[in-house]
Design a protein around this nucleic acid. Structure first.
Lengths: 187, 187
DNA sequence: TTATAATTGTGATGTTTGTCACGTGTGAAT
DNA sequence: ATTCACACGTGACAAACATCACAATTATAA
């Protein structure tokens, strides 16, 4: 488990063993069951999570109670309701397990402490944040340039495994189309 | 001009005068005319820009030659083709002036140097990147939860001034609808 | 000024997508 | 074994949106 986190960080920033021990001391290790909530809308967001294994959905519920999937979170991903996390406000979204999940969590206090005390980690978080931003921009682009069918095919290509792991309803919700339309696209 | 940048940074991170001088030495000051390109697709992306005044569009051109607006950039914004900038690859998007524009630019080398040598600035960039990520996620949410008319009204509410400054065609391209549909929404 | 291009609105029409409804199959729980 | 929730497909219809075409107005440049 520790190795997973270490290898992940070292893809961007090499760390000595002592440095990694220091890093690790800022995290907690947590296990969750299918359907558990890591973040619940309306509540405080204590942590940001690094997913070791499992699968989650970051979900926004609109005024009509309809659920929209902002993101799937899987192995090697960092996820949270970042807006609520960083500004210490109530969650606007929920983060819920689609499968049993193992994760490391870090509180905002520890995130800031770690950033300050180990410069390398601030650099790591910066790089991660930049790639998150770029990934979101690409998703925006897919909405601008592609119709439902094309977005569906892009998703298939990018995450072929996702297909067998999550119900089509959730894929539809991620793609921004109705369940029925997605069903007709597959045929 | 300098004051604009200083005030902007100090909204997040206080700086001494000496520190700000040091920061400033990493930037260049540039002026652009309407229709000028700051970034051109297919070319290298030398800089990230802080917009002092003016208005720009970050545009992606699809395989059919159709243009899609990923973002408008205006006063107090940071903009670039971040993916190409950070990975030193060719631009997939263009950044072009809609109006005459004044900006500070910073090269990747100086961005990294500044981050390393003045810890505060790495923290500043991290905060900026986080808010950029959050803003993009909100835009994704607007595609998931809202139809063209609602997205149009949200845009109006968020940037009322934009309306008089840019042709409707560009607004339509930002919203992901056709020019004609947008025109009919307004009435 | 004059010519030319860009911007905007609007009608007609077709495509895409959403919604409602129904049926079937599957798996989990009692 | 039976019940019940969930997942999935599909038909019928309505709504949203795109595309093509044309006209009028407003910049812009020669």
């Amino acid at each position: 488990m520790k190795e997973k986190l270490k290898e992940h960080i070292e893809k961007l920033i090499p760390l000595t063993d002592d440095e990694f021990s220091f890093v690790l001391s800022h995290f907690s290790f947590e296990k969750f069951k299918k359907n558990d909530f890591l973040i619940q809308k309306g509540k405080n967001v204590k942590n940001c999570y690094f997913i070791v294994s499992g699968l989650l959905k970051l979900v926004y519920e609109d005024k009509n109670g309809k659920q929209h999937i902002v993101s799937f979170a899987m192995e090697d991903w960092w996820e949270s309701d970042f807006s609520a996390y960083f500004t210490k406000t109530k969650a606007k979204m929920s983060l819920q397990c689609i499968e049993d999940t193992i994760a490391f969590s870090i509180s905002l206090k520890n995130y800031q402490k770690l950033s300050t005390e180990l410069h390398k980690m601030e650099r790591f978080f910066l790089k991660k944040s930049n790639s998150g931003h770029i990934a979101s921009q690409n998703r925006i682009l897919s909405f601008l340039t592609s119709n439902a069918k094309e977005r569906y095919e892009q998703l298939l290509k990018q995450y072929p495994l996702l297909f067998q792991r999550v119900p089509k309803t959730l894929l539809a919700s991620y793609l921004g189309v109705s369940r029925e339309t997605l069903s007709r696209l597959s045929s």
